[in-house]
């Protein structure tokens, strides 16, 4: 330990136009410590710090010491090889809690570390649960409507159409489905029963929540040419606090061709996959009178043939 002269330090620092911050950074203490040294409030400092301070001030350490005290301190340090405890108060620079130099964490500081480490995952858990709750917060409801329609049907033959409405809204809401049949197409039956307006405009009105399905059977006629394409279009309107309308997407085109609507690949026979599709996609239409048994007969037989004069199919055994 050495006892430095406060006025001497200040004088040298100001002479070199150095700031207290610069000295504090070089020595590794706080500016407050430098200030106390300069005011001679804690003039006894570690020799190591004294050497750094002297170097910063571009002088020898001895030039910073209080005359007559240095020798005494040095002698006491060396006595018996034992370190001499300097009777410095709590305001001593070396015990300054604000010192920049590395300080070994005390027992109090260590006791906080486990708590901090434990708190991090807890905070993480809270955030995780919060995010979970956020994900379950009802989003603005979505409304989707998909039409399932065969790609083709024979002229004058009944075919099924299914409209599936998915409303991401569990509350009961007013629902309106509108479907415009193509020209020369007529409604045969529907489930639920449709309100039919003029010129092939179909409407279903209900108060529904969640998913809704509408199925109907239709028939289209052709004139001179057999191969005619017809288009279906429609929309669905849901009203809760506000209106939301969506166009019915999915299949919208149907060709009038001399093949059964269930014969997807138009090879004049009903395959295993095609008969399964009839049940999976249009099984619900059986309740409307869709002749599924006749399709199964075609599946079990070797095929079918279109008879244009009779506008009917002949099943081949």
């Amino acid at each position: 330990m050495v006892q430095v002269s406060g006025p001497r330090i200040r004088g040298l620092r100001e002479g070199l136009e150095l700031t207290q911050l610069y000295l504090a950074t070089v020595v590794g203490v706080t500016t407050e410590t430098i200030s106390r040294w300069e005011r001679s409030e804690s003039p006894t400092i570690k020799k190591e710090n004294g050497l750094k301070l002297a170097a910063a001030l571009e002088v020898e350490l001895t030039e910073l010491l209080v005359p007559g005290v240095e020798a005494e301190k040095t002698a006491r340090e060396g006595a018996g090889g034992q370190s001499v405890e300097e009777p410095v108060g709590p305001s001593s620079a070396e015990h300054d809690p604000e010192t920049v130099s590395p300080v070994r964490p005390g027992p109090g500081r260590q006791s906080f570390r486990p708590l901090l480490w434990g708190l991090i995952p807890i905070v993480f858990l809270i955030v995780a649960w919060f995010l979970r709750d956020l994900s379950s917060v009802p989003q603005p409801f979505t409304l989707e409507a998909i039409r399932v329609l065969p790609t083709h049907s024979a002229p004058g033959q009944v075919f099924p159409v299914v409209i599936r409405v998915t409303a991401d809204d569990e509350n009961s809401s007013s629902l309106l489905i509108r479907e415009q049949l193509p020209p020369r197409c007529v409604l045969v039956s529907s489930l639920p029963k449709a309100l039919e307006a003029a010129e092939g405009q179909l409407k279903w009105l209900g108060r529904e929540g969640g998913d809704v399905q509408v199925v109907y059977l239709a028939r289209c006629e052709t004139q001179a040419d057999v191969q005619t394409q017809v288009s279906f279009r429609g929309s669905v309107l849901l009203r809760r606090e506000r209106h939301q309308e969506s166009e019915i997407v999915g299949a919208s085109q149907l060709e009038l061709q001399p093949f059964h609507w269930a014969d997807q690949d138009r090879d004049q026979r009903i395959s295993d996959e095609e008969v399964l599709d009839v049940h999976d996609d249009f099984g619900v239409a059986e309740g409307l009178g869709l002749d599924v048994d006749r399709i199964e007969e075609m599946w079990l037989g070797s095929g079918y043939r279109w008879l244009p004069e009779q506008q009917a199919f002949e099943i081949l055994p």
Partner: peptide
């Protein structure tokens, strides 16, 4: 004291 919370943190 410093190591234990690491694995505790990992567990949490």
């Amino acid at each position: 004291g410093a190591v234990m919370p690491v694995w505790m943190g990992a567990l949490f």
